[in-house]
Design a protein around this nucleic acid. Structure first.
Lengths: 219, 219
DNA sequence: GCGCCCTCACTGAACCGCGATTCATCCGAT
DNA sequence: ATCGGATGAATCGCGGTTCAGTGAGGGCGC
């Protein structure tokens, strides 16, 4: 007798029509969630906290998102999706792969600098879920890697990057390096200058690492 | 119903909070936890699953660990602590900083290769808890970075590494790169050769990045 | 040597608090 | 008056933690 499950609604999208303030409510919830997740982590955050932070009622969350998981998923899809888009555009602004990489690194760390919470959510929470998020985050992650790998591959074809490195490995290394810097910055003291300086140094390190002619073997 | 337990042996175990008991039970729980956490993630894993995987009763977990959180904490303290110890020893086996770095990278990815689950727990779960783990994982992380930074700093003094990079930034980049490679390997297909190859390439990339003499400036 | 207890690691079913989700109800706009 | 987004108290299942038992080992009194 308890089988009154109301899941019959064929529409899996709980997103209501965006009318007036409605559209900005979804946005409010998302940005509140970023704040709270960064503060407490995904699993330690209760839905009611997000609601309070967003200035809406608990139930309202469920008008815009299927459930708590999908709030996090939406953060990735919205924010990281946008980041990748911007990255693609940034890459197109130059034809020199070295400069492209430099801009990509600066772009990422710049974004992060002005939104520390997002940085924390991305670096920390990206890895939180077991299967669910792996499913949603991985495709984005792959897209990200493809952009980087594309730049490196181009550079190799143009002869400005050494060709004995797999673009995908190098892309992972770039991602990892940026992530590592973001992580220690997000967890540590919030000194913005340090971040920029680190970005600069990392770029130098990475670019020399990719350079086609070996430095004189010091030994 | 295998009543087989009580493996006395020469058990001088100061480990359990309780009196001298079968010390191997704690170990069984830890390694089971690594397996299950890697599979499902920390928060999606119930204590009863760890217990089942370890072949003990639910309550037994609480004889060896304060609570679920501390199971994860103990994994870090035990395993990562050991890794850092081995790293330190490895570093001492050589005096050439370039070789030291190379060995450190190989060591880490080697460890990981033979224990994929641990890799996943380290890369993924390291970032799970909000405050609790930050508190326990950060000191270890700092120790780790210090070892790497120490090697780089030495190399700079010896003149085999460029001196315009902060050893700490470079250390973070190294960490990040290794982590990024581990992550994509842990999440992706389990091809061991790929890991070793990636390690090799990353080492090359990183060492050239650190080399003191610039490659011919390509631009 | 024998058997009686006592101890203590271990067990696992039950408890209980928490928090995600629901839904009856409430407005405000048209 | 009607529609539909918004509300938030109540629900309810999950799962971490507890604790009353269990039984094997071994100390000890005889």
């Amino acid at each position: 007798m308890t089988g009154r499950r109301r899941e019959s609604g064929a529409g899996t999208e709980p997103r209501p029509k965006r009318r007036g303030a409605s559209g900005d409510k979804r946005e409010r919830i998302l940005s509140a969630a970023i704040r709270v997740f960064a503060q407490n982590g995904f699993y330690s955050t209760r839905v009611s906290e997000i609601a309070t932070a967003a200035g809406v009622a608990d139930g309202t969350i469920y008008l815009y998102f299927e459930n708590k998981d999908h709030v996090l998923i939406s953060i990735f899809e919205d924010r990281i999706g946008k980041l990748i888009e911007v990255m693609r555009r940034t890459v197109k602004e130059s034809t020199d792969p070295r400069e492209q990489l430099q801009r990509v690194i600066a772009l990422q760390l710049g974004q992060v600098e002005e939104n520390r919470d997002l940085a924390e959510v991305v670096t920390v929470n990206l890895r939180q879920s077991s299967t669910l998020l792996k499913q949603y985050a991985t495709p984005l992650f792959v897209k990200y890697l493809e952009v980087i790998a594309g730049v490196i591959s181009d550079g190799q074809k143009q002869g400005v990057f050494r060709t004995d490195l797999s673009p995908r490995v190098a892309a992972r290394a770039l991602y990892g390096g940026v992530d590592g810097i973001m992580l220690t910055w997000a967890l540590g003291e919030p000194e913005p200058k340090a971040l920029r300086k680190a970005a600069q140094q990392f770029t130098t390190l990475f670019l020399r690492g990719l350079s086609p002619e070996a430095a004189p073997d010091a030994e």
